[in-house]
Design a protein around this nucleic acid. Structure first.
Lengths: 239, 239
DNA sequence: GTCCGTCAAGAGCAGTGCTCTCGTTTCTCT
DNA sequence: AGAGAAACGAGAGCACTGCTCTTGACGGAC
């Protein structure tokens, strides 16, 4: 992001940014499969082979867009969480849920690129994972703090996690320190439930059935909050 | 499926089946984006233009594969449900969950085609919806029967559904007769949670974190069963 | 037995990702 | 400051895609 020393480096950074910008616009219109290096080049008044000076392949351009997408989503989630009172754990969870959904509704194709079918033959490089977990980190922190504050209700209806889950729980705990296995298990349920719902809504599984998805989504996420053991919201339901 | 009257009709049906078979094999290897009409034609010893006598466009071939996919998934779910004692509602739910997951793990690309990002520019024709809801119908019947038998526990931790959800609930009730709004809402949560989990597992969101997905999945689905109000399984946890 | 509809084949169009070469420009090192 | 190296844009070209159109042959119905 810093202005490069030489003029060449500055123009290179500028052109790289322009390529990704145009690519992101194309992605928003035609989806990942419709992203064409030649079309990007055409729109830039360049010849197609010149693009390869900046991105060695189409997949590399896609990777840049993916990392960018994870970052903007992560930022949105971080912002939503930061806007809530620290001790309103339920409100923070609901804010994260709405941030994810709003972000997805605003850029359906980008969401599909991140959380839909992986593009065939494409292997996500390691660079993506650090960006990919930004929202997960926020989520983990909420649960971690809620647990530490003793704000999490006992499991309630949920059965206890099997002993063989301990290994996976330990790995998840890296973003959710101090949380017992049972809560980790419920956390995975709620997290996959959030994205499962958004995917259903975006990919058309709710078509002609759920006509007021905003209402249903809010309620569904409050159900997940209850399953997580988060306290019932004191104020009238968020949104 | 009936043997057509004329020889021409029979050979046409035969060739159509061969095309979809080869296409499904290609789909399993390269994914939806890698499905090529020309490659199918090549494998059949045909010229590419001849395929268009049978499928007017690539999208139509894809549609045939999608409908086929929904049907095999629906059948698997129906079979799994039918194998359980009628009154073991929790067992039937868990059987449906495992049927969905097993089907998806066996054909990841086909699952991605059905429940992942919709292929860009592709609009699912109405023919698909009847096939698409086969599994949902089974799911609805389980909850409907469980509710009719009085086997569903009260909402427990879940907050009551908002009044504005009534319209959507009525539409969902078409596959879930007699079930009150609260249960309908929880049903949507569990259903999207099931597919959200499978998508996370298949699309790599659990990579390097959940290493024993089978165990975690079983527990997650038992959590959903509890949220649905299904009775705790009497026998040791299914699978 | 004719005749119309169906069929496979082939050429061709517009588009794609990607590679290679060829001058030119720009930076860097002496 | 000048020589060598690195980066760059342009262009041609390869192999591939979906799809269209035309041509000629075959098969079933009247």
């Amino acid at each position: 992001m810093n202005a490069g020393r030489t003029a060449r480096e500055r123009v290179r950074a500028e052109l790289t940014r322009e390529i990704t910008d145009i690519a992101r616009r194309q992605l928003a219109v035609d989806g990942a499969a419709g992203l064409s290096l030649r079309a990007v080049a055409r729109e830039m008044g360049m010849v197609s082979s010149a693009i390869y000076r900046y991105f060695p392949s189409r997949d590399d351009l896609l990777t840049a867009l993916i990392i960018d997408g994870y970052n903007t989503a992560g930022e949105a989630v971080e912002r939503a969480d930061a806007a809530c009172p620290r001790s309103d754990y339920t409100g923070r969870w609901l804010a994260v849920c709405h941030a994810v959904r709003d972000w997805a509704l605003a850029r359906p194709h980008e969401y599909a690129l991140l959380y839909g079918s992986p593009v065939p033959g494409y292997q996500a490089p390691m660079d993506t994972v650090t960006a990919a977990v930004r929202d997960t980190v926020v989520y983990g922190r909420i649960l971690s703090e809620a647990h530490a504050a003793g704000a999490l209700n006992p499991p309630g209806v949920c059965p206890p996690a099997p002993a063989s889950f301990a290994g996976d729980a330990a790995r998840v705990r890296e973003v959710m320190p101090g949380v017992p296995d049972d809560v980790v298990a419920r956390a995975l349920v709620a997290w996959s439930g959030l994205f499962g719902w958004v995917s259903f809504e975006l990919f058309g599984q709710f078509n002609a059935v759920v006509l007021d998805p905003a209402t249903a989504f809010g309620h569904a996420m409050r159900c997940h909050a209850a399953l997580l053991g988060l306290p019932a919201p004191a104020a009238p339901p968020h949104r």
